Simulated scan of single mutants.
Amino acid sequence: MFSQSLIFLLLLLAIGVVAKNQSLIVAVFVLIVLKAAGLDSKSFSFLQSKGINWGVTIITIAVLAPIASGEIGFRDLTGAFKSPFAWIALISGMAVALLAKGGISLLAEDPHITTALVLGTILAVSLFKGVAVGPLIGAGIAYLAMKIFDLFK
């Protein structure tokens, strides 16, 4: 009747409700509905393979919306490079993209690490009001930390 995965999802739903985290609540609810409808076998693997790309696309759309609306223009772009904080943001953006690249490599080579990354993301989202963009960046940070650890082994 209640599978281990359903119990786990219900626990995550409860954590989402207690933490008042709408993203976690919606995500778990959608997965429970798909599971209850019997659509889990194909939809879960499809979501797992395409979901990160969709999420990155949606985040990119949200970030680019001020450009599309005219709120940010070329004047803002050129003005931003006069600020040391803009250069820090530029370098940070590049670093995060490179970390994510390492994260993709790690998840492809060592998929069992995904469990720890997902748990870390869930804990940060539910307990510390974090934002669930972490698994890929988390994998990248883990990849970097593992490479540094290997240097000192």
Rank of each mutant, 00 (worst) to 15 (best):
Val33Pro: 00
Leu34Val: 10
Lys35Pro: 07
Lys35His: 15
Ala36Asn: 02
Ala37Thr: 04
Ala37Gln: 03
Asp40Val: 08
Ser41Val: 11
Phe44Trp: 03
Phe44Pro: 02
Phe44Ala: 08
Ser45Lys: 13
Phe46Val: 05
Phe46Gln: 06
Gln48Met: 11
Gly51Asn: 04
Gly51Tyr: 03
Asn53Ser: 07
Gly55Asn: 07
Gly55Ile: 08
Val56Arg: 00
Ile58Ala: 09
Ile58Asn: 03
Thr60Met: 14
Val63Tyr: 12
Pro66Lys: 03
Pro66Leu: 03
Ala68Ser: 01
Ser69Gly: 06
Gly70Asn: 07
Gly70Gln: 08
Gly70Trp: 02
Glu71Pro: 02
Glu71Trp: 03
Ile72Cys: 02
Ile72Arg: 01
Gly73Cys: 06
Gly73Asn: 13
Asp76Glu: 14
Asp76Ala: 09
Leu77Ala: 10
Leu77Asn: 06
Gly79Ile: 01
Gly79Leu: 04
Gly79Asn: 07
Ala80Ser: 13
Phe81Asp: 05
Phe81Met: 06
Phe81Gly: 09
Lys82Glu: 15
Lys82Leu: 15
Lys82Pro: 08
Lys82Cys: 12
Ala86Arg: 05
Ala86Trp: 08
Ala86Gly: 03
Ala86Pro: 06
Trp87Glu: 08
Ile88His: 07
Ile88Thr: 11
Ile88Trp: 04
Ala89Val: 09
Ala89Lys: 06
Ala89Asn: 14
Ala89Pro: 03
Ala89Thr: 11
Leu90Arg: 10
Ile91Glu: 10
Ile91Asp: 11
Ser92Arg: 00
Gly93Gln: 06
Ala95Met: 13
Ala97Cys: 15
Ala97Trp: 15
Leu99Ser: 04
Lys101Ile: 09
Gly102Thr: 05
Leu106Trp: 00
Ala108Tyr: 11
Ala108Asn: 13
Ala108Ile: 12
Glu109His: 14
Asp110Cys: 09
Pro111Tyr: 02
Ile113Trp: 05
Ala116Arg: 04
Leu117Cys: 02
Val118Arg: 02
Leu119Cys: 09
Thr121Tyr: 02
Ile122Thr: 01
Ile122Pro: 00
Ile122Leu: 02
Leu123Trp: 12
Leu123Gln: 05
Val125Asp: 13
Val125Lys: 10
Leu127Cys: 08
Phe128Gly: 07
Lys129Ser: 14
Lys129Met: 10
Lys129Asp: 12
Gly130Glu: 00
Val131Tyr: 14
Ala132Thr: 06
Gly134Met: 15
Pro135Leu: 14
Gly138His: 12
Ala139Phe: 10
Gly140Trp: 00
Ile141Gln: 01
Ile141Tyr: 04
Ala145Tyr: 06
Met146Gly: 07
Met146Gln: 12
Lys147Val: 13
Ile148Met: 04
Phe149Tyr: 13
Asp150Thr: 12
Asp150Leu: 12
Asp150Lys: 13
Leu151Ser: 08
Leu151Asn: 06
Phe152Cys: 14
Lys153Leu: 11
Lys153Pro: 12
